[in-house]
Amino acid sequence: MTPLQRYLVVSTLLFGVGLAGALTRRNAILVLVGIELMLTAANLNFIAFWRYGPNPESAAGIVFTLFAIAVAAAETAVGLALIIKIYRHRRTTHLDQMDTLKG
């Protein structure tokens, strides 16, 4: 295996764990944790491709990762605010119990 492939395997496994968490857990916060893991795996992919790619002197991979980190921060802030709002309303963070569209 080339070094690039090793890092890709790590990031794939990280993505798989995140996906499994997001699909199987019922707590909304843990679903968000799974999504964060998937985003981190994607960042690892970007950096690995930047490092072992054909032209590492370009900054595109790094810049893309920086933007992804910023977007992840925004996503978490809004997601958690929504979870807290729903919790105040329905006293639960269980996704199975958030099944009505009526407030």
């Binding site: 964060e36 990762t65 920086l66 980190i69 921060a73």
Partner: peptide, 14 residues
């Protein structure tokens, strides 16, 4: 992997 800046930004933000 040599991405110093991203690594520190990752710790700071995440």
């Amino acid at each position: 992997l040599g991405a110093e800046f991203v690594s520190f930004a990752q710790v700071m933000v995440y």
